[in-house]
Design a protein around this nucleic acid. Structure first.
Length: 425
RNA sequence: GGAGAGGUGGCCGAGCGGUUUAAGGCGCACGCUUGGAAAGCGUGUGUAGGUUUACCCCUACCGAGGGUUCGAAUCCCUCCCUCUCCGCCA
């Protein structure tokens, strides 16, 4: 959420910034007019309330002295009519303004490239090299089914399309990947582990920006006002919702493993086969709460922490900086990590790392007390995948495949698979 | 699911309809005091909004939302959460 006062004081900049995004049709002039009206009404109402308070106190005094107070009582009764009317108007305006603000996306960082879609994303760096596979590479579905690591047919029977059963060594590999990633982030990169609920309330979904705009993308419970989390970002960022943190404690860095649930409405044609796009997938998430003046450097560190997993697994990847038209609504700046997939002869997103600046913090009311005194300030929130386990599973099968259709276990993972070196039948 | 007890500032805790301002304590900050410290004394110490160069001032907030009243932390209603006991349960 943007600050209404900031919009008021920087109208042209806000218009320019939002204009860099796609689908920007917010009438800020109308919004500011309503805000103006709200403030006028508020001032009037507060004056009347002040008068009312003084009169009521007089009543108390007079009654105590045994004197008549009916005149004052009558006057307050009259005032109440006006106050009620004004307050109703103010409340109406407030809710309209708030609702509008909730729908306005974050301002893109000035440094990020212009552009409508991913074709304008900026290449930042790459690491490693593509594996040299002698034969035509099999895709992860062929490998997974051949080695009996996954069962998509039975998953469809149990649940439907876009679900998977991981089986035997496949299940162990997935579980090993999760443990490996959490261990690296906690033991080497300084994150504290959280294991949060997978069902969250509406306030949490509003706090991180999944609601109200993306209700359609979420799985909701039928009988309870709860949602399945689309990412651990939701419960972990909301861990500190409505709190005032100590500036000294920042940055606070959490990592959390959770499954993630997404309806994938509107992506019916995309990645229909295999593990790339699922209704349920596992992810290790990184979340940071940072001082406002440190969030830029914290984002760079967070990206490196996500990259450290790919490096340890010796997987070729590149880092892309998303253009203004391609970043999510809550984000100000985003780097994607894209891992090489031989079967698709392309790079696929395996992590998305964003700085939300104070956008989520304002929605979720997460502030910090300044050491120098003064009013508490909103913190900056950041998060990124570190990494998506399902897609990492895909990347390992495809990049570590051997000529006979077997898959070598990367060195770093062997301790998590009882020392196993090869996946074969 | 049933029964009971509660939710008050950073924390503990009083207040249960009004001589308008949430007592008191702890903690914290600053000052005085001291060779230095402790103790002691003094002052200050929430959040949001409005107004303002700033100070001040004003309004709201005692779990949340309604209601009664000239006036509500206090009375009434609904909901949420916490704790205790019982039941059920991995």
């Amino acid at each position: 959420m943007l600050d209404i006062k900031f919009i008021r004081d920087n109208l042209e900049n806000v218009k320019t910034g939002l204009g860099r995004r796609n689908g920007n049709n917010h009438d800020l002039d109308a919004l500011l007019k309503q805000e103006e009206e709200r403030r006028k009404g508020l001032q009037e109402s507060e004056q009347l309330k002040n008068k009312k308070k003084k009169l009521s106190a007089e009543v108390g005094k007079l009654k105590h002295q045994g004197k008549d107070a009916s005149k004052q009582m009558e006057e307050v009764k009259n005032l109440n009519v006006f106050i009620k009317e004004l307050d109703e108007k103010i409340e109406e305006l407030e809710s309209v303004i708030h609702e509008k603000l909730l729908h306005i996306p974050n301002l893109p960082d000035e440094s990020i490239p212009d552009g409508q879609d991913e074709s304008s994303n900026r290449f930042v760096r790459e690491w490693g090299r593509k594996p040299s596979l002698s034969t035509k590479p099999l895709n992860h579905i062929e490998l997974g089914e051949k080695l009996d690591l996954i069962d998509l047919r039975r998953a469809a029977k149990i649940s439907g399309a876009r679900f998977a059963v991981y089986k035997g060594a496949g299940a162990a590999l997935l579980r090993g990947l999760v443990n490996f990633m959490v261990d690296v982030q906690t033991q080497e990169n300084g994150y504290e582990e959280l294991y949060p609920p997978f069902l969250v309330n509406k306030a949490s979904m509003l706090g991180t920006g999944q609601l109200p705009k993306f209700e359609n993308d979420q799985f909701a419970m039928r009988d309870d006002p709860l949602y399945l989390i689309p990412t651990a970002e939701v419960p972990v960022t909301n861990f500190h919702r409505e709190e005032i943190l100590d500036e000294e404690s920042l940055p606070i860095c959490y990592t959390a493993y959770t499954p993630c649930f997404r309806r994938e409405a509107g992506s019916y044609g995309k990645d229909t086969h295999g593990l790339i796009r699922q209704h349920q997938f596992d992810k290790v998430e990184l979340v940071k709460f940072s001082r406002a003046d440190e969030s830029e450097q914290e984002l760079e560190k967070l990206v490196q922490d996500a990259e450290s997993i790919l490096k340890k697994l010796n997987l070729h990847y590149r880092v892309m900086e998303l253009c203004a038209g391609d970043i999510g609504v809550s984000a100000s700046k985003t780097y994607d990590l894209e891992v090489w997939l031989p079967s698709q002869n392309t790079y696929r997103e395996i992590s998305s790392c964003s700085n939300f600046r104070d956008y989520q913090a304002r929605r979720a009311q997460i502030r910090c007390k300044k050491r120098t005194g003064g009013k508490p300030e909103f913190v900056h929130t950041l998060n990124g995948s570190g990494l998506a386990a399902g897609r990492l599973f895909v990347a390992i099968l495809e990049n570590y495949q051997n000529a006979g259709g077997t898959v070598t276990v990367p060195d770093a993972l062997r301790p998590y698979l009882q020392g196993r070196e090869l996946l074969s039948l």
